[in-house]
Amino acid sequence: MGSLVDRSLDHVALAAPLMAIGWVLLLSGGRALDALTLGEETARSLGFALERVRLRLILGTAFAVGAAVAVSGAIGFVGLVIPHLLRPLVGHEPSRLLVPSALGGGCLVLAADIAVRWLRTGPELRLGVLTALIGAPFFLLLVLRLRREAI
């Protein structure tokens, strides 16, 4: 489970460049994602080379998430919950969701990291444990709501 205890600037120096590459790749795919909401065929007919878009986005995820997990360990549910929390505020176009999701994710992890220090549980609670403890019930709620909508 993830944690941010005793990380140094070396960790930042190792991860930040890879994350930056990943972010550029991920943010460049916004328009294509909008088109993709219309379906793969439509997106293709709109002139998006879907194979290349997919490759770019997957490479971007690998760079950014790989670097993040490498320095902090797995911090679950942030990537799942944040877009859902923000989607009602920005609407369903993926491109408009990207930057708010990034900022929201930053806020959530910082807040959770403050919480594990503030809770003073003796040896610190692991950050990944806290996000999963809060995230898992939220995930359940989400699934239940989806079920209701589907019926």
């Binding site: 941010l4 600037l9 930042v12 971007g60 990537g79 919950v81 944040i82 999701s101 806020c107 910082l110």
Partner: peptide, 27 residues
């Protein structure tokens, strides 16, 4: 040397997770 890198990493990791989450849900 200790708190600044921690806060910075928290921000960067969180941003990465939020951004890639949104991209994955779209893709």
């Amino acid at each position: 040397q200790l708190r600044f890198p921690r806060a910075l990493l928290g921000l960067l990791v969180g941003m990465t997770l939020g951004l890639s989450g949104a991209v994955m849900q779209g893709l």
